[in-house]
Design a binder for these strands. Sequence first.
DNA 1: TATTGTTATACTCTATAACTATA
DNA 2: TATAGTTATAGAGTATAACAATA
Lengths: 168, 168
Amino acid sequence: MTVTDAETPRRLPPFPEELVASTAFLLKRLGFVAKEQAFDAYESAGLGPYHHAVLIALGENSHETQGAVADALGYDRGQMVGLLDELEEQGLVERKRDPSDRRRHIVKLTPEGKRMLVRLRALSKRIEDEFLAPLDEEERGQLHALLLRLAEHHLPRRGPLVLPPARR
Amino acid sequence: MTVTDAETPRRLPPFPEELVASTAFLLKRLGFVAKEQAFDAYESAGLGPYHHAVLIALGENSHETQGAVADALGYDRGQMVGLLDELEEQGLVERKRDPSDRRRHIVKLTPEGKRMLVRLRALSKRIEDEFLAPLDEEERGQLHALLLRLAEHHLPRRGPLVLPPARR
DNA sequence: TATTGTTATACTCTATAACTATA
DNA sequence: TATAGTTATAGAGTATAACAATA
């Protein structure tokens, strides 16, 4: 949420070699700047990457309940309330009670939400292309495959993480 | 700083495919869990990854000034004060005024600090090996090289990030 | 006036736990 | 009694700015 270096007044000294030699260090730092860049970019849409993730989840599997979306994304259910409030304010989703279990909220994308999803998908692609710019297509594929392997072990889910169908 | 899933009561549904297809998403999530795992593991030493990074910086280039260490690691100078306070309490570093510029503090590793550095290096290697366990040696090298390429663009420094000398 | 290190403040995130309404 | 969603509170983490000493 902070610009890391865009307006840094002077060049910084190099990182200690021992840190640069650590894959985990690079992963942590790069994940952090990717997050920062994403937040900055989404700001123009009045949303954040979390909102986008919620819209994606709702787009892939409709008629979701609020808690199911939270679980699908690994979010806390308390967080989810605020995210959905904001999405609802902008008319991107609608919540209604599940008649068969009145404790539950069924959440659905509105037409505006679907349009926003298209817009955010383009935005997200632009951010990612920019971030991966140093790598050619083959290298991007390699990186994705390697990270996916790690994700299968460290982001455990019900099934194995599916391989993405030919990207876009 | 939180156990992501160790005690999660039930298996979670899979992530939306569109997210899994995003390299940036995987990078952000994996960076996050790597950070969590590191914090948990360092806890036993009464320190954190940040303290380790400070010790590394001091170990590679002695006679550093406080601000120089902060810059070398990309930390805020205000943060650095607290980190050094904690390291000093444990007798791992010592601060003394620079006689030639009495505003500055020269920070040096103590012998205990050097021993702790050895210990943390082993700890860090163990964490990283565990994290990269799904990948064989060649794949780890590929991943490191790819992340390094991204780091050169997104973690800008004075010079190009050096290639690590034959790891360990 | 600018800079180093320090301290204080405020702001964001997140984690926890109460609370309601339903079951 | 347990669960879905909500709300409130507290804590950690971080960013900002004021501050004292020195240049």
